[in-house]
Design a protein around this nucleic acid. Structure first.
Lengths: 263, 263
DNA sequence: CCGTATTTGTTCGTATGTATT
DNA sequence: CAATACATACGAACAAATACG
């Protein structure tokens, strides 16, 4: 059984993109009409082929404009420290260490603060009863002005009652909200659990990251729970990254520094 | 602008699946023809809606049979130990610890051994020159008889020359190939680097995991490099998991044991 | 600012192929 | 072999986004 036509066309375009025959990053592909004529196929078949390329992140299509080559963007590399105190996503300058050394410029919006009732996942991670009160701080984070991640951290209300009132202020806490809690309430991080999930983006993520709206490009959701030395959780951070431009690295023990351009 | 029709239909089906109105796991959806009549749309529009559900892993479609509900399969949870010696993917019984405690039954094929020349990624991870000789051991791994992961480990040929000849035998090394190397050559793991990538499946993966062939469901590729105490790499393991049925957890420091059914 | 051309997105209808029962 | 279900492919029309004179 030969491959279907859309697939053969897709492979042909893939080869032409990888070899550079269709131009470098940012160059528009021929329009669907032109590809239809060139491959002697219907426009729908061409669209299936192009869709396959977008799923692979090799092209992006923009309504009204065209389809553009997207050659091997270097991925953002997020270092997941194996240290308990290692940042996975501080609010302030701290999280710069997540980004691979280089000229990448991280940036973040001011946090949006909400007072909510704990539901499902958050309640269970924080060891709270359903509908206990929590505070959430949500930020949009960028690298080089391109959308990089969405992050929300949830704290039990008791932290505020105990004096960490700064958590309610809608500006970035430097050098990091967790450090602020440590200093204010003498709570020390003694443990951490990171949970990785791959899933399709929701509407908010689709819009913010400018992903195709049929969920072809996945997001990585990292849920990090912090524990004090008695093993009680005191913060949960949920961060989502688009899967097509991120890589995660965890180094443990004695290992040489990151190789140059390792995949 | 209201959502397109395929999207509204998809949301409606999603709600009906989640609420159980369309039956539990394994129950067939109405056929495309019936859905076409029921929603007063064309069959193509119905297919767009169903495709969105398959991307989300909520249904599976099988040619000639139908489309079947796939309600919240419990994900396989892979523990990524933060310990240097922690297994991420031993060959033998060792990797059972990756699988969440329970009645899950891991199993693996006998390894397929190949002698190759190091290319790109493997050469750079192992610190070899391009075209140096390496040995690869490839396994298919299952949980409860369903395809779970594909794993290939690459070793530099010098390990065999130094006496680890068992690496060339095509059967499972118990309790693990790395442990065998440690014992035979007195090489100790002193460091580890795990690299996470999300990408679309290749043909082999699409077939083995029975994923849709247009790449809608991603795979997670974990590349683990092991270092001895001088910081020299001596093994690289590449494992791929289908993203729609796996979750990864890393625990560091003092943290309570895994909560019951945490997401 | 407006209208027009171009490009992708949505929706329809139809025909035929392939897999399964 | 026939019936049923999904997969592929074609052609057509209109909508929405964008670019440009």
């Amino acid at each position: 059984m030969p491959d279907p036509m859309w697939r053969r066309i897709a492979e042909d375009l893939r080869q032409k993109i990888e070899s550079g025959d269709l131009g470098k990053d940012g160059v528009p592909l021929p329009s669907e009409i032109e590809l239809r004529d060139r491959y002697d196929a219907s426009r729908n078949t061409i669209r299936d082929a192009v869709k396959w390329l977008t799923t692979r992140g090799m092209v992006v299509t923009r309504p009204g404009q065209g389809t553009f080559v997207r050659q091997s963007i270097d991925p953002f590399v997020t270092q997941l420290s194996s240290d308990v105190t290692g940042v996975q996503g501080g609010e302030g300058a701290a999280y710069a260490s997540e980004v691979k050394a280089g000229k990448r410029e991280p940036d973040a919006s001011d946090p949006r603060i909400e007072i909510q009732r704990a539901s499902g996942l958050v309640a269970s991670e924080l060891g709270l009863k359903h509908a206990d009160t929590i505070v959430s701080r949500h930020q949009e984070r960028f690298i080089d002005n391109t959308p990089w991640s969405l992050q929300t951290t949830f704290y039990p209300m008791r932290l505020i009652e105990q004096g960490a009132t700064r958590l309610l202020q809608a500006d970035t806490i430097l050098p990091g909200a967790v450090q602020y809690i440590e200093e204010t309430l003498s709570i020390k991080r003694a443990g951490r659990r990171d949970r990785f999930n791959i899933r399709t983006p929701d509407r908010r993520e689709t819009e913010f990251f400018a992903l195709p709206d049929d969920g072809r490009v996945a997001v990585v959701e990292v849920t990090q729970t912090l524990y004090d030395k008695s093993g009680n959780p005191f913060a949960v951070t949920v961060t989502t990254y688009p899967a097509d431009r991120n890589q995660f690295v965890m180094t443990i023990g004695t290992a040489p520094p990151e190789p140059p351009g390792a995949a």
